[in-house]
């Protein structure tokens, strides 16, 4: 009877295989076993690169001009993505720890943050922070875009941190407490190091999702990849050509990073066996 209530007797604590959590947003991750040269990933990735190389060769105008015009935008896209993911990770860690906190106030604040942010579309959040809060708080354009992306992704990452922390077997915390560690010590030196290994792949996915969603900031006055493409299109009226190049660059970036995440995942798995 009480065996069901105390954690120590449950069989899942005995396994040495680290638990997996499954949070994805549908980003394409090459699966194991797809080693064929004709795998979907290879076709898409190298196909996109080939098209991007061949087009300027065949039609130097306008493709060569477009390719010369957009690199600033790629840099801006990277900047927004990288800075946002760093702040989102910090916010996510705080939110995740808050969600498992025993302090009711902290717990409620974290939960409300996660629920509110996840309930509002990212585009609406961008508008809200840029147009509604930005002038009040004297935020500059790029800053407010980064704030909005960080706040939004912090909430999603918070749920990943929470799930990752909870995926570490309860016995780990108990063993740490039994040795005389405080809860805080146990979380930082025992639970979180194990959490990070569990959540690295889903965090990689979120990074890719953020890279794609960063195109939304083009609506604000930020010259990211999409906006640079739009600027070229609206002066040259070459809409088809401009947006083709923009889409291909996004595709190549996304596929590249998804392969990195896939490799990282495979590597973590190999170390486990």
């Amino acid at each position: 009877m009480n065996g069901k209530n105390k954690g120590s007797a449950s069989p899942d604590h005995r396994t040495s295989v680290p638990p997996m959590i499954n949070i994805t947003d549908g980003t394409l991750i090459p699966s194991q076993g797809e080693h064929s040269v004709l795998s979907a990933w290879n076709i898409a990735f190298f196909g996109a690169i080939a098209v991007l190389v061949i087009l300027p060769l065949v039609h130097p105008s306008p493709y060569r001009e477009i390719l010369a015009f957009v690199p600033d935008g790629v840099l801006a896209t990277f900047e927004v993505t990288l800075v946002s993911i760093v702040f989102a990770l910090l916010l996510g860690l705080l939110a995740g720890l808050g969600r498992i906190s025993r302090n009711i106030v902290v717990n409620r604040i974290a939960t409300i943050y996660v629920e509110v942010v996840r309930g509002i579309p990212l585009l609406v959040q961008l508008f809200y922070i840029y147009y509604a809060l930005g002038p009040l708080l004297h935020l500059k354009g790029p800053t407010s875009a980064i704030v909005a992306m960080s706040v939004c992704y912090g909430a999603y990452l918070g749920e990943i941190f929470r799930a990752g922390i909870q995926a570490v077997p309860k016995g780990q915390m108990e063993a740490a407490l039994a040795l005389g560690m405080s809860r805080t010590q146990a979380i930082w030196s025992i639970v979180l190091p194990q959490t990070i290994r569990i959540i690295l792949p889903p965090i990689g996915n979120e990074f890719i999702a953020l890279l794609k969603d960063s195109s939304l900031v083009s609506i604000l006055a930020i010259s990211d990849l999409l906006r640079r493409g739009r600027e070229y299109a609206s002066t040259s009226f070459q809409y088809f050509q401009s947006y083709t190049v923009v889409a291909l660059i996004y595709l190549i970036l996304t596929l590249f990073f998804s392969r990195l995440v896939g490799l990282m995942e495979a590597r973590l798995k190999r170390r486990d066996t």
Partner: peptide, 9 residues
């Protein structure tokens, strides 16, 4: 403990 609970990392 029954399940050892060594720290795997």
């Amino acid at each position: 403990f029954q399940s050892f609970n060594l720290f795997p990392h």
